[in-house]
Amino acid sequence: MIDDDRELSGMITDFLATDHLDVTVRHSGEAGLEAFRSQDFDLLILDIMMPGISGLDVLKRVRNTSAVPIIMLTARGDDVDRILGLEFGADDYLPKPFNPRELVARIKAILRRAQPQAEEDRVYQLGDIRLEARTHRAAVNDNELHLTGTEFEILKCLLERPGKVVNKEYLSERALGRRLLPYDRSVDTHISNLRGKLERAGNRNETIQNQRGVGYLLIPGN
């Protein structure tokens, strides 16, 4: 956890400990990045509003090298931070102040999803897009897609029902492990990131379409 509020992060450490979650805390972007490089973490909680290297900068640098699940803490009502955070590859966000039980729920949802499920051994193929559930890898033709866990899960949901609309509530439950909230644009932002990555990997035939107010569908190429 990287957060400059020492008292808050101390209390959250205590709280998460009762849920058997082991937390390492750093209070600045620099220290956080250093700790992140020297150790393996399952998940990163990142405060966006920090002096020095901002949370967004930390997010970008971490994402350059790692697909670790990231939950960012934003100021409530600050849409810019939230949208930028998701665009820079955060998996989910939680506006401060939050109920720590909500934080635990999100951490668990993301960790559960991040674990490769042994029983699932399917390989999805639609046109140029190929996704292997077991190895957690996706590619367009032979170009590997570097997806975050959330983007991977969303692509999998869409590949499960090609050509059919998958609603946003379902995508939120599956990919973020939580209910869709009012004014929640997380799924939309993840989809837009996913589109960008597919396109940059050379995908021209399959398209992700938006069905207004309902959800998204992946349309197979001709």
């Binding site: 509020d5 209390m11 959250i12 509003m49 409530r76 102040p97 720590p100």
Partner: peptide, 23 residues
């Protein structure tokens, strides 16, 4: 922005404290 941050930081700590107390 500062008010938002400064008023909400104690509020954030308070909500965590309430949950800790509950436990």
């Amino acid at each position: 922005r500062n008010i938002s941050h400064e008023l909400r930081s104690p509020l954030a700590r308070m909500r965590v404290a309430v949950e800790l107390a509950r436990r």
